Amino acid sequence: MKKGRNELLLEEEKILAPYAVKSRHSGTRAYVEPEHPYRLPFQRDKDRIIHSHAFKRLEYKTQVFVYSEGDHFRNRLTHTLEVAGISKTISKVLGLNEDLSESIALAHDLGHSPFGHAGQDALAELMKEKGGFEHNKQSLRVVQKLERRYPEFPGLNLCEETLLGIMKHGGGYEPTNLLVVRREKGPSLEAMIVDSSDEITYSAHDLEDGLESGLLQLEEVKTLSIWKRIQDSLPKTEKKSGSEIHSISRSIGRVLLNLMVSDLIETIHQTLIQYDVNTRESISELYSKKIKIVQFSEEFQKEFVELKHFLFQNLYRHSEVSRMSERGKEIIYLLFKHFESHPDSIPESYRNREAEDGRMRIICDYIAGMTDRYAIEKLKREGIFWFPY
C-alpha cells in the first residue's frame, strides 16, 4: 500500500508520545514552500543537511586528532554520525520524533572550524571585537545564510523546530523572532537528547581513540570510578590480561556507550513519570523552572563528571594534542591576517557579502568553512611563510 503525506502524518501521530514534536504542526519555514507529497518536514530537513556542502566538509575536520595522524581516528563527520545514531536510538525508545532528533544532530557541528576546538578558540580571539565566534552559532548561520544550494532562498530553509534545536545553548544569538521563540518555549525534548548524545559520544570515542593512539594508558583508565561498571560489562575474552590494547579500547568504547545510553534513557523515563509529562508544553514548563529532564542518575553523573575531567587533563591537555592544537591555531591566525591585507584572495562569493557583513566576518565565514587539509593547502598556495612542527 502506497502511503501519502496524510497517511504518514496519521501514522506518526499514533506512534509518537504526547510530549514529542509532531510534524503536522512543525513544518513552519522562513520561506514558504509547498509540502512534499510523501516526505514529512523533518525528513526533508535531514536530506537537505546531508546534501549540503558544509556537511560534506566535516570528513576532513578535526575531532581530537588531525586527519594526517591516522585513518581510524574519529573526525568531525564520524562524530556527527555517531551523535545522530545515538540521538535516534534514544528518541525511538522514548517515543520522540526521530527525524527531528536526527536532523538536529546532523547539523549541530556544521559551523565547526578546522582544527577542532583550537580552531574555534583562534577565531573567537580574532573576532572578539566583531561579534565573536562560537561553532553552535556558526552552525545556525550556515543553515540560515551561508549554504547556497537553492536559488529561491539563502541557506537550507529548515523548519523552525530544527533551527530551535540547533540553537544549542539558547544565548548570545542575534535578536530575532527565532530567539524570542527559543527563550519562550525552550528546547524540545528531542533537542535536549541531541545535546546529551553529543557529550556521551565524544566522551566514549575520545576515550577509545586516546587508548588506541597510546596517549592514554589502560592502567590510568582503571583508576576511574566508572571502570567497575565497564569491567563488569566487558566480554569475557577482553578481561584477559593478554588481550591487545586495540581490541580492548574498542570494547571499552562500545561498553561505555551502552552504559551511558541505558542509564540516560531510564533516568529520563523516570523523570517523565515523576512530573507527569504529557504535552510539549509540559517540557517547556519544566525547562522554565530549571528542572532537568535529560540527565544521568545521580551516581552515574558523578562518575561521568570524573571521566570528563580525566579526559580533559590527560587527553585534551596532552602535549601531543596541544602541539597539534597550537599548529592549527597558528595556521588560522596566519590565514586570517593574510586575507585581511589581501582581500582578493577571498572567493568572490564571500566578497559579495562584505558590504553587508564586513570584511572580518566574511573572512571568519571563509576560514570556518575550511577543512584542515584545505587550510594547510591554502597556506602553501598563498605563499605564506610557515614552519610546520
Rank of each mutant, 00 (worst) to 15 (best):
G4Y: 06
E11C: 05
P34A: 13
D47Y: 06
D47Q: 10
I49L: 08
H53Y: 05
K56P: 06
E69P: 02
L81R: 11
L81K: 15
K88T: 15
D109R: 03
G116L: 05
A122N: 04
E125V: 09
G132I: 10
F133N: 06
R141I: 08
E160V: 09
E161A: 12
L163E: 05
K168C: 10
G170S: 00
T176Y: 04
V180R: 09
R182S: 14
R183P: 03
Y202G: 10
L207K: 02
E212T: 04
L215I: 15
E219N: 14
E220L: 13
E238L: 15
S241K: 13
G242C: 08
G242R: 10
S243T: 15
I245R: 12
H246V: 11
S249F: 00
S262A: 13
D263A: 01
E266P: 01
N278P: 07
E285S: 10
K290A: 12
I291C: 00
F304L: 02
S322L: 14
M324C: 07
I331W: 02
I332A: 01
H338M: 04
H342K: 02
P347M: 03
R351F: 03
R353M: 14
D357K: 15
R359I: 15
R361D: 07
I362S: 00
Y366G: 01
D372Y: 00
L379E: 00
K380D: 05
